[in-house]
Design a protein around this nucleic acid. Structure first.
Lengths: 180, 180
DNA sequence: TAACCCATGTAAACGGTTACATGATTTC
DNA sequence: GAAATCATGTAACCGTTTACATGGGTTA
């Protein structure tokens, strides 16, 4: 985020909510110590900006050292972490569940992911309208934002489809495995 | 897992690798203390099984108390955690990357997820062949395993598609945002 | 004889969350 | 008068990972 523009800890927290929150999140209690740590490592530096009518803020920018480190990290090899999705974990124990309650749970999550998908697709449309040709240029930050969003959309689509599938099976469902 | 059959810590570790590892993972260093904790809480109990030619083992089974707790947990509400996918995080900084190296990274992950997808689909075919009609019964553990696997498949499909999309953009890519 | 499987644990470190803590300004 | 926004931090806790630790049996 700091490679795109200079931001305060509070700004970073805000970015975490909307565009970046689609694929990463962090609380302010993680952000502030991390900024201090990065500054001690020479990756970022800050400037105190005095404001009127609101608290002063520390605006951070990335240093040349930090930028080089970031560039290295981007293309560094990465072994994919094993997935950890609690709803899928619940699905694995679904055979033990009260069918009514299970149905409600999966319907709720279907709705939730449909809502997310809708928001992502709105953002997608906004990006295409607003940023147009930049989205074809891999050297543009707009392209990078768009790429991250695309992943979110495909993920949510799959999730909605899956929840729908589970809901249908539960609705049709023949009760327990042996009894009628 | 213990609600399906009685297992040792080592067995649980094994299950984590193949069928369960598709959606959850845990190291043995987490499993053993957790079993002890669950036993202290009355959720599971163990029996020492002596073996010849190999170390003795502790076989754990779920208690009635544990089973009730599990049934409650399955249908308990769950607020979805924000996604944390490091490759998507890298994608967000892709505009800073050496295009050659970025291409290699995403090609590698495309391959990796294609491979996973293939394995999942093989397992899927195996389940349909082997378990047949059980897969329609929400009260059957086979149905639950199948449901969890379905999520993995949809996820991998989306991932492969996304990596392919990024690779294509990088191949076509017009270099930096302003220069030629 | 080296590597791998079976089998079970502990200790230190790390990343992240929740809760604690403060306080002025603006909006409802 | 209450709630939300702006703004920054710390402390305790918790789940997880990495590394440490042991040791017999089997397979290549």
């Amino acid at each position: 985020m700091l490679s795109r523009e200079a931001l305060s800890g509070y700004d970073l927290k805000g970015w975490m909510e909307r565009p970046v929150g689609f694929f990463w999140e962090a609380r302010h209690s993680q952000i502030y110590p991390e900024l201090a740590r990065l500054e001690a490592a020479g990756m970022v530096s800050h400037e105190l900006v005095e404001q009127e009518g609101r608290p002063d803020k520390k605006v951070y920018e990335i240093t040349p050292v930090g930028l080089e480190a970031l560039k290295g990290w981007v293309v560094a090899p990465l072994e994919p972490r094993g997935a950890r999705d609690e709803l899928v974990l619940k699905a694995y124990s679904l055979w033990l569940a009260d069918p009514e309650k299970a149905l409600a749970l999966f319907r709720e999550h279907e709705r939730l992911h449909e809502e997310r998908l809708r928001r992502y697709e709105e953002t997608n449309a906004w990006m295409e309208r607003e940023w147009g040709d930049d989205l074809d240029l891999p050297g543009s930050p707009h392209f990078a934002s768009y790429a991250a969003l695309r992943r979110g959309i495909l993920n949510e689509r799959g999730y909605v489809e899956w929840c729908g599938w589970v809901v249908n099976r539960l609705k049709a469902g023949g009760g327990l495995s042996e009894s009628g």
